[in-house]
Simulated assay, not measured.
Amino acid sequence: MAETVKPPPKRRRILDPSAIVSVPIYSNQVSNSLQMKAPAFSDRESTGEKSKIHSTVFKAALPERQFPLKVRCRTDLHKIHVLPSTPLSAVVEQLSVKLGVPPPRLLLLREEAELSADATVGALGLGIADILECVVMAEAERDTPTGGDVDDVIKVRLQGKDRTMCQEFSVRRDAPLGSVFAQFSSGLAVVAQRKVSFHFDGCRLSSLQTPQELDMEDGDVIEVWT
């Protein structure tokens, strides 16, 4: 049997490392572009870009929101839906329908100060948490009382810190002083109407009190604090 002859082993070729030449995968232009860094912007340039972005944003005007304005009359609490631009005269008209009383006989108060019917809800800063007081006055309370016993009518003088701020009113002994306070406050600015208060014998007065309850006499002076 013939013997198989093994082929001679292959000789490995040893390359000289110095003879290896590196070949770039990318061209010089591509390599330079890969090494480029993003351009740095200065604070002034970035601020300018932000301002340009913000300048293109416009805020649309928000529509007025309706809310219930609470008004207390005697023991009842009424809710009148209003807008910030609604004048108080419109509130008085709605109360007039609910109460069956003419608008001239209704008086709106906040902290015992009369509110002007020409002022708007927004101008007075009224909100959903506020509660106004509504006073229903008798027909004769707006005018100088006439008829009846002369002793039932007295004159009271409302005097402020300024001597020029002095007015005299005629009122029945059994009539609430709210009508007098309202007539006096109507000549004050809106800001002053919010702060005004009336005092007699060192005590703060309520618009529902009467001269008879306070034991007032003809010619007594009510102090006005603003």
Rank of each mutant, 00 (worst) to 15 (best):
R11G: 10
I14G: 00
D16H: 09
D16Y: 11
A19R: 12
I20M: 13
I20H: 02
S22P: 15
I25V: 11
S31Q: 14
S33F: 06
Q35V: 01
Q35I: 00
M36A: 14
K37H: 12
A38K: 14
A38R: 13
A40I: 12
A40R: 14
A40H: 14
S42C: 03
S42W: 00
D43W: 07
R44A: 09
R44S: 00
R44F: 03
R44V: 05
K59S: 10
K59F: 13
K59M: 10
A61D: 05
R65F: 14
L69S: 02
L69V: 02
L69R: 04
K70R: 15
K70F: 10
R74W: 01
D76R: 02
L77F: 04
K79S: 13
I80T: 07
H81K: 13
H81Q: 08
L88P: 05
S89R: 06
S89I: 09
A90N: 12
A90P: 00
V91Q: 01
V91M: 00
S96A: 15
G100H: 02
P103N: 03
P103A: 12
P104N: 01
P104C: 02
R105G: 02
L108Q: 02
E111P: 09
E111T: 06
E112P: 05
A113C: 13
E114Y: 02
E114R: 04
E114S: 05
E114K: 03
S116D: 15
A117I: 05
